[in-house]
Every structure is written in structure tokens, then in C-alpha cells.
């Protein structure tokens, strides 16, 4: 069972609506990723998801796919990422989670991976291609190294929602829309009903992601959820401004954070 008061991730949702920011590590370089993460925190991000680049990110739309390609071309590796996270941990207490696919974890060695997560200060992992049925692949080991395996719930989860939510720790990643990541002008899923379903069985905080880019969307969604996740909009800024993206990211995230309901 998730202890909301002691879980490092859950805690950030306790007193305010949380802003969760995503970026792909190593795009355009590990040093810049470090700088950007700190800028995101200063701008008000409560939690940062760090994408470990993967050659074949099947849950991602074109914006994050391209970021993965840029990062890998620039020489990003899981080892370099752990080194960067260790450096960042000297400078911030903010919870950090990895977003990656099961293969980079599996091939690195599940035990070795989660041990390194604990040593470098990673609090959770999001693995889009590891559904409930397969989470036994990593759950025991992740838990033993105090890393939350974040539960994803989709618009198509329907009769699975409560089964998934019951075991969720850290936060619940509620996928707002069908399809892959990417900016959307409209989110049509009936999030209120899904959230009510979840709430019957779980107190774990719920953050909504996929398609959110504007303060208006963030405001509306944070009315019912505990937080919003923004990825593609951030990665787009990095794609456009590269090494000079820091200030623009700061301004963008600041305006997004301010738009959240209180």
C-alpha cells in the first residue's frame, strides 16, 4: 500500500496541484539536460520525468521520437545518464523519475539498473511497454531499491482501472487520449469518470499526461486531477532552441505552473 505521507513522489502532490515536466536526457547534451532540469525546478516543476533515450520508442509521437534520435546520435547512454543524475542530486531534492522502455532496463540488467537508480537518487520509473500483466519483471527488484514503478491508466483501460489503481504507488499516470505522445488541441476522454473510478480504490495522486500544452488545458485538467504532465511541448522548445532553451523553458513552465488550479 502506498503511504502518501512518506512516499517521496506522492508527497509533492499533497499541498498543491503538481506540475510534472518531461524531457529526453542527452538532447542536446547531458550537461544541458542537467541545466534544463534545474531550470524546470526553479520555474515551479514539482517532479521531473527524465526520458532515457531508446531507439524505438513505440509510445511516442514524432516530437519525442526525434528527441530520442538526437540524444542517441549525441552519444547518450544509460551510464552517462546515471552520472548526470548523481550530479543533479547534489543540487536538488525534487523527486526524479525515469521514463524508458523495458528493453534498456532489461539489457542493462534489472538488478544493476535499480541499484544504480537508488545510488543516483531516482525515485520512480515509468515503463510504457510494461503493462500490469508483465510488471513482475521488475517490480520486486525496483521496490527493494525503493523505486516506485508508476502505473499507467489509459482511456481504454475500462474494467481494468481498479485492478491497476489498487496497486499503484508514487502517482498514477492517467493517459488523457488514445495514441502516442504529442500536443493535442482537444482532449476528449471523460477523465472525471475514470478519476472517480480510481478514487474508489486508491488515494494515490493522479497526474494526467499526453497532449497537454497550454495553460488553459492545464487549468481545466488540474481541476479534477492532482497534477498535469507536459512532455512534447517542452521537448519542442528544446528542439527549437537547443543549447539556448533554458530561459524559454523557464518562462513556459512558470506560466503553466501558475495556471494550475489551487
Amino acid at each position: 500500500m502506498n503511504n502518501l505521507l512518506t512516499n517521496k513522489i506522492s508527497k509533492v502532490f499533497k499541498d498543491n496541484k503538481a506540475f510534472v515536466a518531461f524531457l529526453t536526457a542527452g538532447d542536446p547534451s547531458m550537461d544541458k539536460t542537467e541545466e534544463f532540469i534545474l531550470a524546470l525546478e526553479r520555474a515551479g516543476a514539482d517532479l521531473v520525468e527524465i526520458g532515457i533515450p531508446f531507439s524505438d520508442p513505440i509510445a511516442e509521437g514524432p516530437v519525442i521520437q526525434e528527441a530520442n534520435e538526437r540524444a542517441l546520435s549525441a552519444g547518450a547512454t544509460t551510464d552517462k545518464l546515471f552520472t548526470m543524475v548523481k550530479r543533479i542530486r547534489q543540487k536538488t531534492e525534487m523527486p526524479l523519475v525515469f521514463l524508458t522502455y523495458i528493453n534498456p532496463i532489461f539489457v542493462y540488467g534489472i538488478e544493476r539498473f535499480f541499484k544504480a537508480c537508488q545510488e543516483s537518487g531516482i525515485n520512480g520509473v515509468i515503463v510504457p511497454d510494461l503493462p500490469y500483466e508483465e510488471k513482475g519483471e521488475i517490480l520486486g527488484i525496483a521496490t527493494s531499491y525503493e523505486v516506485d514503478v508508476i502505473t499507467l491508466i489509459a482511456p481504454t483501460s475500462k474494467d481494468r482501472i481498479q485492478m491497476l489503481a489498487k496497486e499503484a504507488t508514487g502517482f498514477i499516470y492517467l493517459v488523457s487520449s488514445l495514441g502516442v505522445t504529442g500536443v493535442r488541441s482537444e482532449i476528449k476522454t471523460d477523465l472525471k469518470t475514470i478519476i472517480a473510478d480510481i478514487r474508489q480504490v486508491s488515494e494515490t495522486p493522479i497526474a494526467v499526461g499526453f497532449g497537454i500544452s497550454t495553460p488553459e488545458q492545464a487549468k481545466a485538467i488540474s481541476g479534477t486531477a492532482d497534477g498535469v504532465i507536459v512532455g512534447s511541448a517542452i521537448v519542442k522548445i528544446i528542439a527549437e532552441y537547443g543549447e539556448n532553451a533554458g530561459e524559454i523553458l523557464f518562462d513556459y513552465v512558470k506560466s503553466m505552473k501558475q495556471s494550475l488550479s489551487v
Binding site: A59, D129, E133, E134, L152, A154, T156, S157, K158, R160
Partner: peptide, 12 residues
């Protein structure tokens, strides 16, 4: 083998 796919596809 197994079923390593996104939650969105599990019901399908």
C-alpha cells in the same frame, strides 16, 4: 514471449 505492450492496447 509474453505481452509487453502499452496499457492502451491491453484490452484489445
Amino acid at each position: 514471449g509474453g505481452q509487453y505492450i502499452p496499457e492502451t492496447l491491453m484490452n484489445a
